[in-house]
Simulated scan of single mutants.
Amino acid sequence: MNDVIAMLSFDNLLIQTENAPYLGHFERGEIKQALFYVKATAPAGAYRACLILKYKNTLGDEVVSEKHYFEVLINSLEPLRIVKVETKNVGVGLKGDILVDVKNEINYSVRDITFFVISSDSAITPVSSSYFVGELEPGEFGQAKFRLSVSGDAVSGLHRLYLVERYDLGDADDLVSVTELTTFVESKMAYFEILSIQSNLHPDETGDVIVKIKNAGSLTLHNTVVKLELNPPLTIAGGSSLSSLIGQAQPGLYFIGTLKPNQTAVAKFKVDVDKDAGAGFYPINIVAEYYDNEGYMHTSSPITASVEVKEKPLITPLMATAIALAVIGLAIAGRFARRRVKRGKG
């Protein structure tokens, strides 16, 4: 027999065969193994299966063998049982981890175990989608860990994932089972609010931009850095003049450190204003970079705001001081002059 294909079917429609193994050339008296993947949603019990072989004879004609019936026992006990699912930092706009603990529930070793996580939800994307566990002895526990990225547009609440288990059992290789995982996505855990922006900016001068931010989320942030992004005619003091000429934003960095929920902090920046800058409001972007409790770095969404550049005052603080000192000096000189005049008359 040539081009032999094995085909398995069930009387019960709740049991479906997912493949038809190709056995190739089959000599008389030869023994070959056919591995079928079966998806069963039927209750546990014994079900009749039908096996046929489809092949080509020596003349090249296609032949279908007679039907062979046998009994298949569907067991409600899965080799690998999920005993615990834990999530860490799985929140809107974040990258987090999902940990899946499993146990070998049968009396045989389960070998070459690999887990895959699949998301049908566009709001959740697996960053690391496979995890190799290896072998689990009877009664032994194992753990699979996956990294997930949650969109900033995701809705908090329960989301559906699928865990695919691929393993070897006895003489059968590459067995596959699929389990549904329900994962809870928390509301925005890391969220920044800009409480105030103060600036003292004038053309052809270096001024200050002071930003007060608040951790309005529920996650403690570590090694927090606030980044200020500007565009000409504003640049971070000490930044590259060449970058300013080609219109490339010069980011300024301010280290804050640990920022707990509801805690506020102030970031200060020195900003150069071009001499040709006109008075008015100019856009700025504020971004925060931080680490979560697991040591992973995150970057917040940019917050766009504006700062005002004011015309130089006609009288600067230095000039005002000088004028005040001059007035005081003139007043003292006038007093001395009047005293001399009085003494001369006397």
Rank of each mutant, 00 (worst) to 15 (best):
Y162A: 06
L318W: 13
E311P: 00
S119Y: 09
D276Y: 12
V273M: 04
A305S: 10
A267E: 00
A322K: 02
Q248E: 12
S300W: 13
P21R: 03
Q143S: 10
A49L: 06
P126G: 00
G152S: 05
K145D: 02
V83Y: 08
E311V: 05
N293V: 06
N200D: 14
N75C: 09
S177E: 08
L59H: 11
L230V: 04
G157A: 10
F36Y: 06
K95L: 09
I15D: 06
A20E: 14
I286H: 00
S240Q: 00
D208R: 07
T264A: 13
T264V: 04
E71W: 04
T220W: 06
T220P: 07
S65C: 06
V127D: 10
G139A: 00
N293W: 08
D276Q: 06
P138H: 02
D112A: 12
K84A: 06
I52T: 11
F146I: 03
D274P: 02
E86I: 06
V176I: 15
T304V: 12
K310D: 02
D168T: 14
G29N: 10
L161T: 02
A190F: 12
S244V: 11
S177K: 13
K270M: 08
E62Y: 08
I52N: 14
R343F: 09
L245S: 08
K67S: 07
E66D: 15
T182M: 13
R28L: 11
V63L: 03
S129C: 05
H222L: 11
Y108F: 14
F132V: 15
